[in-house]
């Protein structure tokens, strides 16, 4: 068996950073436009929606659970906010949608945090339930906003502040906020503890149910914010718009080195994971490859990134299992 050298684990632990830098170098060598400010900005903007959702899912996963329902929750929130926009105006549509989405998060949180049901299956079931609710609500029709030029709602997806697109600002601000929460507050510490060892957390007086419940509320809140960006950018919504997002989001979180076992991971590395997926997509397209080659590259990158992580922990490259 190949034993890793002493310096190996330290590098492998930063595997995502190393891979990120390698990809950036390769792409900038292959394409002149890759490193241009315009291109960077457009990548950041495109990654904002998945990015914002990935922040919430990271917190759920650090807490030791999964959330597969974010995709259909995104459809739900987007359809709701777009549909209500014309009916009750954006100033009411946004809070109503956020509240409704938080309710869905609360259902997840109750089933998983309080009743202690398996998060993968609960959120898989919720994925189906919420998708059904969206279709029932919309009657299978796609929705859109009539006055796309006049509404101030456009600012979230199409606007810019000081020349920086609003989605980037929202994503950046949220990333910073959640990074601070996870690394500097008592709540963040408790999420790590509950994800790392739920039993020991209870033995330390941590209200485990409450912590897990809150992580799902945060995840739902992130979805609601992502839906505002998406709805505002598209000014309309298909009722299955979020389909498949749950797994892309999870891929970004995993790529960022957050362990599915819980208790380990970081918001900033998730941002790196999100950006990496976006840059792979962008770089390949700039190199003239069709968009779907990104999936092939992502396949390899995810497995290698997690493999290095696992290998660093066990101190050898290959699993010792016969």
């Amino acid at each position: 068996m190949t034993r890793l050298k002493a310096g190996g684990p330290a590098i492998a632990k930063q595997g995502i950073l190393v891979a990120f830098i390698v990809f950036m170098i390769v792409f900038s060598l292959m394409s002149d436009r890759f490193l241009s400010a315009d291109n960077m900005m457009s990548v950041f903007r495109q990654s904002a929606i998945i990015g914002v959702m990935a922040l919430g899912v990271t917190i759920v996963v650090i807490g030791g659970n999964l959330d597969l329902s974010v995709g259909s929750m995104l459809s739900f929130a987007t359809v709701l906010v777009v549909d209500l926009h014309d009916k009750i105006g954006p100033e009411l549509a946004i809070p109503v949608m956020v509240l409704a989405t938080l309710c869905l998060g609360a259902v997840n949180g109750f089933l998983i945090g309080v009743l202690r049901l398996n998060s993968l299956i609960v959120t898989l079931g919720m994925l189906s339930v919420i998708q059904g609710l969206v279709l029932i609500y919309s009657g299978g029709q796609n929705v859109d906003i009539a006055d796309q030029r006049g509404t101030w709602f456009a600012i979230f997806g199409r606007g810019a502040v000081f020349g920086i697109a609003t989605p980037i600002i929202i994503f950046g601000a949220l990333a910073l906020l959640f990074h601070v929460i996870m690394s500097m507050t008592a709540f963040g510490r408790r999420v790590y503890a509950v994800g790392g060892n739920p039993t020991a957390s209870v033995f330390s007086g941590i209200p485990r149910s409450q912590v897990v419940f809150t992580t799902y509320l945060i995840s739902a809140l992130c979805v609601a914010i992502a839906a505002i960006i998406l709805g505002s950018r598209v000014m309309g919504s298909q009722n299955t718009v979020g389909q498949g997002y749950e797994l892309q989001v999870l891929a970004a979180v995993i790529l960022g080195g957050t362990s599915l076992l819980g208790g380990a991971g970081s918001i900033l590395k998730t941002v790196l994971g999100v950006l990496m997926l976006a840059f792979i997509q962008n770089g390949l397209i700039l190199m003239g490859q069709p968009y779907y080659t990104q999936w092939l590259v992502t396949w390899v990158v995810i497995i290698v990134a997690v493999w290095l992580d696992v290998a660093a922990k066990r101190g050898r490259l290959f699993s010792p299992i016969a």
Binding site: V180, M184, T185, A186, R189, R190, Y192, A193, G196, N197, T199, A200, S201, F203, S204, G205, I206, G263, A264
Partner: peptide, 29 residues
């Protein structure tokens, strides 16, 4: 190992876990 410690957490954080919410300055630990 199962009830006493969060093994991947550092020593200090393990030690202060039961009172973490009281060790704050403003919103931060």
């Amino acid at each position: 190992k199962e009830q006493g410690l969060v093994l991947q957490m550092n020593c200090r954080d393990n030690m202060t876990l039961p009172q973490i919410q009281d060790l704050t300055a403003g919103p931060f630990v």
